[in-house]
Structures are given as structure tokens and as C-alpha cells.
Simulated assay, not measured.
Amino acid sequence: MELDDAYSNGAYIDGADGYPPRWAAEAAVLRASLGERAKLDIPYGDGERHKFDLFLPEGKPKGLFVFVHGGYWLLFDKSSWSHLAAGALAQGWAVAMPSYDLCPDVSIADITAQIAAAVTRAAQEVEGPISLAGHSAGGHLVARMLDKGLLAPEVGNRLRTVMPISPLSDLRPLMRTSMNEKFKLDEAAAEAESPVLMQDRYEASVTVWVGADERPSFLDQAQWLADAWGCDQKIDPGKHHFDIIDALSDIDSEVVAILTK
């Protein structure tokens, strides 16, 4: 369809096929290294995929960081991303990573509600401030968590920092992709799920993070959100859609500093 190429990432990244197995392998190493500090498959709902992993730092956590994975709401689960907890863990934060149901089995709105349930359940495990980050479709999902209609005030008011990384912030263009056969978005659903159109939001520090070498459509999506919300935007030199998340595993990265400040 008209915008299929505009929203294609892997075709424009050298060695794209090597990233998913590398992510999965590094994630497994991180989980194994934590031993009893890795609390796996905590349920937040009744579905098979309604579970999150909770990784605990040494000592009392300073707060809770929740990372939500991407994959166009069509791919992956929590098991491929555990290594991205390393930076926040080293800064003394607990890290939760949820799985969620995928399209076309459910709608994007259903997934948004699932992430709200996962954040709420994880917040029961860890006291203190909450920071959220998500990548691509996950960037959409963490941005949606600022909607006051999704999280109860006792959770929403704990949000300190939200970082949509290479987010999908306006879903209306996706109606002009072949993926919409699985999303099943119409105009009303796309508008309802577009963070750029959200008005009544919880107060939190928001930084939109995007790679300078991303597809123009993703640079646009990041800019649209930063403009709509009047929030900070960081364009990371030399980074593309797949390696933009690597900084989460680096205790010395600016990304980790923002999320755990």
C-alpha cells in the first residue's frame, strides 16, 4: 500500500536479521546473571501473555522503571529485552518488562489497556517514582500511559519520566499500510489511540528519543509528538531504529541518566 515503504525499517538497516537473535541471547544472559533477583512471569491479567518480568537491584529500589517492547504490536514478547534493564538496575532501580497480546488477535486499544494493567500491577511491587520507556510501538504505549483515563491517580501521579523511543505517535498514517489488515484501524480508532491527540495527561517529564538515521516517517512521528506536547526531543546521531535502544543497557548513557534521575 501507499505507505508500506515509509514504515519499513529492517529493509534499510544493514544486518537487520541479526538483531532479534542477538537481543534474545543477550536478554537470556542478563536473566541468568541475576539469579533470584529476576522474578519471572508475574501475572497482571488472565491471558497467557499477561505477564511481566521484574528485575531487582541490589538493595532497596529507588523506583520502578517499566520498559515496553515494540514490533508494530505484531511481534515479540518480554523475553527478548531483559538486557535493556542493565542500565537502570545499575542505578538502583527495579525494572519491569511486560508481554502483551498481539494484533490481529486483539486491537491496539486492547493492548493499551493491557499495558495500563501491567504498569498498575508492577507498581504494587515497588514503591517510589515510576519511569516508563518504550520502543516504536512500545513508545506509543508508554505515551498512552499519560492519559488520565487509563491509570488510576495513585499510579499515574507516581509517573516521573516517560521516554517514547522512536515512537508511533499518530496512528492515522498506518491506515495506509498493509499492516492495517491486522490493526483494523478506522479513523475513529486511530484518533483515539494517537498520543498526539491526547489532551488530559498526567504531569511527568517527557523526552522523545529518536535516531538520526531512522526512516523519515519515524523522524516525523517523533517530531509530531514533541510538537503536540511541547516536550523535549533528542535526536541521537548515527543511530537507527534497531540500535537506538542499546543505550538502555549502558549505566553511563544519557538515556539512563534521564530515566533514573
Rank of each mutant, 00 (worst) to 15 (best):
L159Y: 07
R158T: 04
A109Q: 10
H135R: 11
G156C: 01
E125F: 05
V119S: 02
I111L: 02
V155F: 00
P195Y: 09
G156V: 04
A143E: 08
G139N: 10
R144Q: 13
I165D: 04
G149F: 09
K148M: 13
E154A: 11
E187T: 12
H140D: 09
I111N: 01
A192I: 04
D186F: 12
E154H: 13
E187Q: 13
S194E: 03
V126A: 01
E193C: 12
V196N: 06
A188E: 15
A116K: 05
A123S: 14
L150K: 06
L159G: 07
V142G: 09
T120N: 04
M175A: 06
R160G: 15
P195S: 11
D110I: 02
A123Q: 08
E193G: 07
Q114W: 08
G149D: 07
V106P: 03
V162F: 12
E193S: 14
A152Q: 12
A133T: 12
A122P: 02
A137V: 13
I111H: 02
A123T: 08
K148L: 10
A116Y: 02
A189H: 05
R121D: 05
A116L: 02
R160N: 15
V196L: 07
L132A: 04
A109E: 12
F183V: 03
A109Y: 00
A143H: 11
L159I: 11
Q124N: 12
H135Y: 10
A109T: 11
E154Y: 05
S194N: 06
L171N: 04
L132S: 06
K148I: 09
V142E: 07
L185A: 00
V119T: 02
A189L: 14
D110S: 10
Q124K: 15
V162Q: 11
I108G: 02
N180R: 00
I165M: 15
A122T: 02
L132W: 05
L150N: 03
H135G: 09
R176F: 06
V142F: 11
L159T: 08
I108F: 04
P195M: 10
S136K: 08
A152N: 04
T120M: 06
D186S: 10
S194P: 07
R160W: 14
A118I: 07
R121C: 06
L150P: 06
P129S: 01
S178R: 13
G128S: 03
N157Y: 00
M145I: 09
E193T: 14
E181D: 13
Q124F: 04
S166C: 13
A123Y: 07
A116D: 01
S194G: 03
E187D: 12
D147F: 14
K182H: 14
T177G: 05
S166K: 07
P153L: 01
S169M: 12
Q114M: 07
M145R: 10
A152D: 10
M179D: 13
G149T: 09
E154K: 12
I111P: 02
A109R: 11
D147L: 13
S131E: 04
G156W: 02
R121I: 03
A113I: 00
S131L: 08
A123G: 11
V126E: 01
D170C: 00
D147P: 12
L151E: 07
I111K: 03
A118F: 09
R121K: 15
V142K: 11
E181I: 06
M163R: 08
E125G: 02
I165S: 06
A188Q: 15
P167A: 06
I165R: 09
V142N: 09
I115F: 04
S178M: 01
